[in-house]
Design a protein around this nucleic acid. Structure first.
Length: 277
DNA sequence: CGCGGCCCCTGGCCGC
DNA sequence: TGCGGCCAGGGGCCGC
C-alpha cells in the first residue's frame, strides 16, 4: 500500500500515460478529503493546462503543470489512482475524476478512509525543484544527505524512542510503520530504545538497512500494486518478506524467541526481544 | 522546541 | 446473523 515504494510504483505506472496530457476538467464527488475540495477553484486553475511531469517526493505524488502550478496528491492510508474510460460508472469511494485529452480518458482517485490529499500549489519552487510546501521534509532515503554524520548529529539529545525518530519525515522520508519495524529488526535495535542511545554504527546500519528494505519493496512494486488495487486478495510481497510486522506471538525467523507487539504513540510496533536491544 | 495524545474516516475481523 | 470493540500502512494539530 501507499508507502514510499508503492508511491514510486504508482508514479512509474502513471507517468507515461499522464505526461503531455491536457486536463479537460476536474470533478469532485466529495466535499473534501483531508482538506476541502473546491471544484470551481481547481477547474479555473487547471482546465487546458498540460501535465509536464509526474514526480514523487516523500509519499507525495507531484503533478507538475505548464502554468507554474502543481498538484500535490497524497494517498493517505487507502488512496489509489487508476485510469479508465470516462464512460465507466463511478465506483464506491471514488472521489475525484480528472478528465484528460479529449475527455475520453479519466484519471480516478479512490480513497475509502479519505485520509488522502489533493492540493493545488502555486508557491515558488525551492532549490531542489520541489514546491515550497514540501520544504519541511527531510532527505529522501537514497539521497546523499541521508548519511551517518547527519543521522548521528540529529539523534543527539533526543529522548524519544528510535521507532518514532526513523518514522518522522523530518528525519528521513518514506519509512512508514511497516518499514520502521522491519528496518529496526534488521539493525538489531529495539523500537523502544531512546534515540540518543544510538551509536555511530547504529546510524550506519539504520541507513543501509532502511535503504535495503525500501529497495526490495520497490523491486516488488508490481506485486504490491496488485494487492493495493484489490485489497481483499492480500497475498503479496509483504506476507512473504516480513520478519516482524504483524507477527506478534509467532516465533522469530532468526532465534527461538517470540515476536512482541507494543503500542508507541498510538501505532503498533513489532520486535524480537531476543534479536533487538 | 520536543513529545505524546488525539483526531480525521470507513471497513474488516474477531468474539460474544 | 448482528453488534460492539478493536485495529489499520499517514500526518496535522494541540497542549503540556
Amino acid at each position: 500500500m501507499p508507502e514510499l515504494p508503492e508511491v514510486e510504483t504508482v508514479k512509474n505506472a502513471l507517468a507515461p500515460h499522464l505526461q503531455g496530457k491536457i486536463i479537460k476538467a476536474c470533478h469532485f464527488f466529495t466535499a473534501g478529503l483531508r482538506q476541502k475540495l473546491d471544484e470551481e477553484l481547481f477547474n479555473n486553475a487547471f482546465i487546458g493546462t498540460k501535465i509536464i511531469r509526474l514526480k514523487r517526493r516523500s509519499k507525495y505524488l507531484i503533478f507538475e503543470l505548464d502554468n507554474n502550478k502543481w498538484i500535490l496528491s497524497h494517498l493517505g492510508m487507502t488512496g489509489s489512482w487508476r485510469l479508465c474510460p470516462s464512460t465507466e460508472a463511478r465506483k464506491k469511494h471514488e472521489h475525484i475524476s480528472v478528465l484528460l485529452g479529449d475527455g475520453t480518458q479519466d484519471l480516478r482517485y479512490c480513497d475509502p478512509r479519505r485520509f488522502g490529499e489533493f492540493r493545488m500549489i502555486t508557491a515558488p519552487l525551492n532549490k531542489d525543484d520541489d514546491p515550497q510546501a514540501l520544504a519541511h521534509l527531510g532527505p529522501e532515503p537514497f539521497d546523499d544527505a541521508f548519511n551517518q554524520a547527519y543521522l548521528w548529529n540529529l539523534s543527539r539529545n533526543k529522548t524519544k524512542a528510535v521507532k518514532g525518530f526513523i518514522m518522522d519525515p523530518k528525519t528521513v522520508c518514506g519509512i512508514g510503520n511497516i518499514y520502521a519495524s522491519e528496518t529496526l529488526f534488521r539493525c538489531g535495535i529495539s523500537p523502544l530504545r531512546k534515540t540518543q542511545k544510538l551509536t555511530k554504527k547504529d546510524c550506519h546500519n539504520l541507513i543501509s538497512h532502511s535503504q535495503e528494505v525500501l529497495q526490495q519493496a520497490i523491486a516488488a512494486g508490481g506485486t504490491t500494486i496488485i494487492d493495493f488495487q484489490a485489497p481483499d486478495g492480500s497475498e503479496g510481497w509483504f506476507h512473504q518478506q516480513l520478519n516482524v510486522y504483524g507477527r506478534n506471538g509467532k516465533k522469530c525467523t532468526t532465534c527461538d524467541k517470540v515476536i512482541k507487539r507494543v503500542v508507541q504513540t498510538g501505532r503498533s510496533s513489532f520486535y524480537c526481544p531476543g534479536c533487538q536491544k
